[in-house]
Design a binder for these strands. Structure first.
Ligand SMILES: [Zn+2]
Ligand SMILES: [Zn+2]
Ligand SMILES: [Zn+2]
Ligand SMILES: [Zn+2]
Lengths: 159, 159
DNA sequence: GGAAAAGCGTTATATTATAACATTCAACAG
DNA sequence: CTGTTGAATGTTATAATATAACGCTTTTCC
């Protein structure tokens, strides 16, 4: 049972707070720097359970600033966060989403609702096993798995 | 046992010929038009078992022509071929590859070698089942699965 | 044959991402 | 402290991928 069901009401402030806290601890333990900018970008990524585009983040970063931020600012922060496993890239929609369990290494697997855009990251041993089995049958060594399932979430399929 | 092993020598002319023949039959049976341009693009996609970028196709289309082809020419042909299931898009690398079994509906799953770029499309009931199980556990209805596994193929892992 | 739709050419532009170099900041040794 | 070094960020420009919009041509079908 997960700590929240993003398809229902929940206190999302907790999600944000938890994600930021975990990120801080994780970076501290790895002795790397979660700078204010990186933390800010992570916070913006976590504004919802919907994937967010790099240029959306850029626009939000720029809000209220005198000079607009530039693309490399965002992409560098995202690169850092992705390297640390704090953020995933959803290549099928060119968007980014916070990782729900950054402390444990995993192949990411996402359920992306095409209607409400809510996206959840799932971990399912059966998927991992079937992929590994299949790859090894072909003598293939998986380095990086991208599994993105688009469709309708519980909420949207009934509406 | 598959009709060829793309990691070893094989007569790739057969692959191209078979793919084009199957495409013609399939379009005929669906009563849709595989125009010369579309067929040409499909042929270019099938030039190898490596994914190919839209602008690479564009460049090859332009070879020997007086006026260079424009992006919409290629993208429209690719859109058509994808709608008909003759070509898949690999979003993790922004590239396109011919479908190895376009006549039967399937979720695409690819093993993409990061070294030699050879890519094979696999069908494995266990993967389909585990994905379906997992999605339905979350009340999610899969409309479109994108599974792209990057890593080392048999050949490259030993070299 | 003529209307309607599909296909394609063409021009322009949107969207996503990176290269390259300058400047500032943080860490650390001496 | 201070000077040195590498990391982080700012800044400008550009690359790479993809689509919008409009008009002409070809095919389909009555
Ligand atoms: Zn939440
Ligand atoms: Zn994750
Ligand atoms: Zn296929
Ligand atoms: Zn290889």
């Amino acid at each position: 049972m997960s700590c929240f069901n993003p398809y229902r009401d929940h206190n999302h402030q907790h999600c944000i707070k938890d994600a930021l806290n975990e990120a801080r601890l994780l970076c501290r333990s790895r002795n790397i720097r979660l700078t204010p900018l990186r933390e800010r970008v992570l916070e913006l990524v976590w504004q919802s359970h919907c994937p967010v585009g790099a240029y959306e983040i850029l626009a939000e970063l720029t809000q209220g600033e005198s000079k607009p931020a530039q693309p490399p600012t965002v992409y560098r922060a995202l690169d850092f966060l992705r390297e640390q496993g704090l953020v995933h890239r959803l290549s099928s929609i060119n968007a980014y989403i916070g990782c729900s369990h950054p402390s444990t290494p995993h192949n990411s697997c996402f359920l992306i609702c095409t209607q409400c855009r809510t996206t959840i990251e799932i971990e399912h041993p059966a998927i991992e096993h079937s992929l590994e089995d299949c790859a090894s049958e072909h003598g293939f060594i998986i380095a990086d798995a991208s599994i993105e399932l688009a469709g309708l979430c519980t909420n949207c399929k009934t509406n």
